[in-house]
Amino acid sequence: MLNRFMQSRLRGLMILALILIILPAFLGNPFHYELVTQMAIIAATVVGLNLLVGFAGQISLGHAGFFGLGAYFSGIATGTYGWPSVPALLVGAILVALIAWIVGRPILRLKGHYLSMATLAVGFIIAIILNNERALTGGPDGMPVPAFEVFGWELSAFGRYSLFGLEIEGFQAWYIFASVVLLVAVWFALNLIESPIGRALRSVHGSEVAASVVGVNTAKYKSLVFVISAIYASLMGGLYAHFQGFITPAVASFEFSILFITMVVLGGMGSTFGVILGAVVLKLLPQVLADFQELETVMFGLILMLTMIFMPKGLLPTLTAIVSKRMRKKAGGEA
């Protein structure tokens, strides 16, 4: 019993790892690596957001605020004050967690659209501060961020490294690093979902009233998952800043928040692997649609609309439902 349970949880993780291992065979040039690396970082962020949206059922329209805070904290701490990258990343995450905890308590009492509104306001306030504190953040024109560095060892997308005697390029090293980060992020999320906390969360999603009646401290759990998803965003924001080498307040913008939530909904709310697919699709679309030029925006809107109309549960849940239905049919036919 326990064995099977472990299996089901690990199967998805194994498949994801396998895809990440095979993928480089199909990546033609450094740009492709960069794109996939970004996808992995963004995907890890939405895996965190999905804990809040998909499992606790709370909509955040301001998550880019936490992402941006993490990015800027890393950028400023390492760039302006010369901190090493890892402490900057961790202190940034602790700070963001604290902020999320402080604002989370009052706003998580809100319901539905009012909660969305409050998260939107928090996100906006963060973006406005980043935009206006020019002395610290460089203002709207942004700031450069130094390469990621661990114990004096620099991870630059432009460097060359040797790994276990294998010569690899900087962009490949980043790809490996981001893949590992994504796997860890997913592993942690899956464990959380299956833990007692996760079960409590899902009960909150189902019906908050019912949950509190049977004795679940809904406020505590909502607040906890809000903080966890903010930590995800902060850490990934920091990595994103190091990887990009340059950040502007756009990383904390409302548009970016909307993009995150769209990834979650498009990929499939509540499906950890679904939201990864959502991130991949939405990162890939602008690149694929770039050739449509003038019609790029039209196409993007149309695809988003049609997907959501015909797959309201999201890409992955819908696709798996179709696949399993076919399989069952096939199995039935053979029998």
Binding site: L266, T297, G301, L302, L304, M305
Partner: peptide, 28 residues
């Protein structure tokens, strides 16, 4: 209307898609 059993969030994303689409057409 076609997205009948969709969540409210899904409907919101549909309206976001619609707004991008309409804006794109207007721009062209």
């Amino acid at each position: 209307a076609p997205a009948k059993q969709a969540d409210v969030v899904t409907l919101i994303i549909i309206t976001i898609g619609a707004s991008i689409f309409i804006r794109g057409i207007a721009q062209v």
